[in-house]
């Protein structure tokens, strides 16, 4: 059952990205380009997504188990630290360069866009680089 819900959740998420326009870098960049010809559409994507998930997320917070009876794996970190801020700023620079973030990168892999493979390989390399950096600067 949990594999069925996992597959359905991933599929819905991916179809949503496609319908919303998140898999079109030009559209994402038009949202980020507030000083140019601004396309506010993606604000509505966030509004819709948060609107739908607000109640389920709040409900989940108060539960001890999932609807299927398995244990919850929700984030426990509360502290706003330099890693969060530094990481988010770096991520934003990368996102602003091409308009591609991790979700759409996965959803675009099989749609025949050769360029996406280049992004995806770099993304995985970046995640590997993080592990090296963590070992070099463990207190950061």
């Amino acid at each position: 059952m949990r594999f069925l819900t996992a597959a359905l959740a991933g599929l819905l998420f991916g179809l949503g990205l496609l319908l919303a326009g998140m898999t079109n870098p030009a559209k994402v960049l038009a949202f980020l380009d507030v000083a140019g010809a601004w396309d506010p559409s993606l604000a509505l994507v966030m509004l819709g997504a948060i609107g739908v998930s607000l109640w389920p997320m709040q409900w989940t917070k108060k539960q001890a188990k999932t609807l299927l009876g398995s244990s919850l794996h929700m984030p426990t970190q509360r502290r706003v630290d330099q890693r969060l801020i530094f990481g988010s700023l770096l991520f934003g620079i990368g996102w602003g360069l091409t308009g591609i973030c991790p979700g759409p990168a996965v959803s675009l892999l099989l749609s025949g866009q050769g360029a996406i493979a280049l992004f995806f390989i770099s993304l995985i390399t970046g995640m590997g680089l993080f592990r090296v950096l963590e070992r070099l600067f463990p207190h950061w």
């Binding site: 991520f91 390399t125 993080f130």
Partner: peptide, 14 residues
Amino acid sequence: PAGLLVGVGTRYAS
């Protein structure tokens, strides 16, 4: 560079 920055950045930002 975009993929690299997104990879490192999202890990630091969790």
